[in-house]
Amino acid sequence: MAFESFNEFIAMGGHAPYVWAAWGVTGGLLVAVVLHARAERRLLLRNLQRRVRREERLVANQGEMAGISHQTGGNRHDT
């Protein structure tokens, strides 16, 4: 240990504002960068899921429509 007590460690031999400002900004930015990357990934996955689900629904709807038109077509043939 380079310091006798915790208070001395915080005081940094009178250089506390410089040392803690530099370390604080660095630590803060590193954490912010990680949080941003995590939020970005979550958002993209959510958007992707939403899009895939919407398109699946669209395909399913089209399938139904095709089925109906096929039926009506069939009916027409019957008459």
Partner: peptide, 14 residues
């Protein structure tokens, strides 16, 4: 680096 490295003889803890 913060707690165990010795202080610099010229610059101190900065």
């Amino acid at each position: 680096g913060l707690a165990f490295a010795p202080a610099d003889y010229q610059q101190g803890n900065s």
